[in-house]
Nucleic acid binder design. Sequence first.
DNA 1: CTGAAAGCGCTTACAG
DNA 2: CTGAAAGCGCTTACAG
Lengths: 336, 336
Amino acid sequence: MATLKDVAARANVSFSTVSRAINEPGRVNADTRARVEEAIRHLRYTPHRAARRLRGRSTHAQIFGLLIPDIENPFYSGIVRGVEDRAYAEGYAVILSNTNEDLDRERFYLDVLRQEAAAGAILPPLSDGSPVPYHPDALGFPVVCFDRRPEIDGLDTVVVDNEQGAFDAVSHLIGLGHRRIGLVVASLDLSTSRERADGYRRALREHDVPVAEELVRTGEPRKEAGQTLSLDLLQSADRPTALFAGNNVMAMGALTAAQALGLRIPDDLSVVGFDDPPWVELVTTPLTTVRQPAYEIGRTAADLLLQRVADPDRASSVVVLPTTLVVRASCAAPGA
Amino acid sequence: MATLKDVAARANVSFSTVSRAINEPGRVNADTRARVEEAIRHLRYTPHRAARRLRGRSTHAQIFGLLIPDIENPFYSGIVRGVEDRAYAEGYAVILSNTNEDLDRERFYLDVLRQEAAAGAILPPLSDGSPVPYHPDALGFPVVCFDRRPEIDGLDTVVVDNEQGAFDAVSHLIGLGHRRIGLVVASLDLSTSRERADGYRRALREHDVPVAEELVRTGEPRKEAGQTLSLDLLQSADRPTALFAGNNVMAMGALTAAQALGLRIPDDLSVVGFDDPPWVELVTTPLTTVRQPAYEIGRTAADLLLQRVADPDRASSVVVLPTTLVVRASCAAPGA
DNA sequence: CTGAAAGCGCTTACAG
DNA sequence: CTGAAAGCGCTTACAG
């Protein structure tokens, strides 16, 4: 592999100059720089990261950690792409972990990141009063939270306006005439679920629709749970005429439940989902959803981490991105 | 952070001795060693991994690299999960790269992996006679290929039996009475596409159906290309009565094209897809597909890499996993 | 604008 | 068994 010395030899300059051409190009004569750049290209030179880390002022590796609960969930894979693109643009690599919400797994990866001197980590904080501390002092590197709000203060965070997103979805249903609207959502221990449930309730209240607690069902954020909970709701005595599914996998379950009961959408049942994966346009009745800007969330989280790395003392910020209600064909007036 | 020198000062020995006490404890006097160990504990010293890697012999990190063309493609995210689970079980972390099939990006990550002293990499080899060499000698670490077959020999590889998978799909269509079957597939530069096209042709030949080359269309493995190519095929004079889509994103495009033309599936058009993402069960007409065992592919690739790391001299192996034709509702006799 | 030199934290021959 | 020294590939004051 080519080193600085090889480049210097080929460009006929000292290796200090090569280093400067790379790190402070403005302080190098244009001709010299051109020769250096030619040599770099010709030799396919890339700086040795370990050596760089050893001497440079920042001792951390050009590595971000990214913890993802479920890589097969399109919402999260969108985030991965956003983080990865932004990191790559700044020369950072991403260590990915598919945690399955598993505490041991999360601990393991946080430990690896510390050992590898990662520049920081991006993660959805665990919901419970977990023993994993996300405080930079304990971790040894900064953390940016996404999706959920962390329980401790002072952490950079990117979330969406879940409350408003849910409010929009449920208001849309109420506007069509629905009054019995089921909510199928993940555990209310998660800030996301809580906020979506809040938006659901506010929409009902503001439109003078009574809140029926038996219409709110929570469970694992999986297709199976979405299906079971929806099935149960749809088979109850005074069944809801509309369903709001709190995330894309549970929405899948809701549609499967409707299919199993022979309910046509939107004639017999209106459905709105949260998240906007590609399949929603291909289903029997294209699904109305609350779109979260997954790629943007990832990009913003990486941005915050880059800023934090550049200035460890800057005030922490919480970025709230908007959601968009994407109206497709899955909602109609009840009994239409 | 404490360094070797701090430890040496406290233990009253030279820092060479500290280094030796850590790396070759047997070659250090027991008393000396005890003093060093006390100092290490007291100062909470841990060796600086970057410095260590810079000078030492090959002491690789517990890290695997994983290169993925498109993390939002469910086929690949299944593979990520498989690799990650297996790696985690052995204490390895995974550095993920979403390459977008971009050569620069691939080079960057391969370089990062080398510099971070990764134990090895798992990747779908590029198809063209690319300047990126996957030979361990050039890379500095072993490589396991998946999905596509590498152009050079001697690399551990995991693929599926694409030829047979395609053969099964097309035979299924022929069995229903189809004789004009369109093939929409990615570039034939890819071994996967080539093998699927081979299976397509063999099925036609073995059932004495003439091969019409105008029914074979290739393009970018994206929904848009799948849609355009399908649209074109379906609007041609003697349009095919069935479509075989060579991967899940192009299958999406094919379904969208059929929808746009008002063709009902399977009455007006039969469709089989390759890959088996979750959405295929939710579409208007559940899609018949050739299932690839994505998770298994990932797990097997990680397995091969672990074995390679344990025994660098073992003979390379090529694992071919079977596909399964999953018959759903998207195929019927032509003109039924 | 450029080069010579020191040094990051460590490992490893080489002497003693 | 131990220490002094060279050097991994790089960055960064410090001169010129």
